[in-house]
Amino acid sequence: MGRIAVLGEDARVRGFALAGALVRPADGPREVAEAWNTLPADVRVVILTPRAAEHLKSAHLEHERLTVVMPP
Score class of each variant (00 low, 15 high):
T49W: 10
M1Y: 02
D42I: 09
G28I: 02
L56H: 14
E9C: 00
A35P: 00
L48F: 07
N37S: 14
R24K: 13
L39T: 05
R14I: 12
V68H: 06
V43N: 08
T38M: 02
E34I: 00
D10V: 07
R14A: 12
R24P: 03
W36Q: 11
K57Y: 04
D27C: 02
A59K: 12
N37C: 11
A59M: 08
P40R: 01
V43R: 00
V6C: 10
L7P: 03
V69L: 04
V23R: 10
A26V: 03
G28Y: 03
R14E: 08
L22F: 09
L66G: 07
A11H: 13
K57C: 11
T38E: 09
L7C: 02
V69S: 00
A53I: 02
L7Y: 06
P72H: 14
V13A: 10
L48G: 03
R44E: 14
A41D: 14
R30L: 15
V43G: 01
P72C: 08
V46Q: 07
V43A: 03
L18A: 15
A26H: 02
T49R: 11
S58E: 15
R30Y: 07
P50K: 10
E34N: 03
L39H: 12
D27P: 01
P72E: 15
V43L: 07
R51E: 13
A11D: 10
E9L: 10
I47G: 00
D27E: 15
R51T: 15
P71N: 06
V13P: 09
E34Y: 03
L39I: 09
F16A: 07
E64P: 03
I47M: 05
A52M: 07
E64G: 05
A59Q: 13
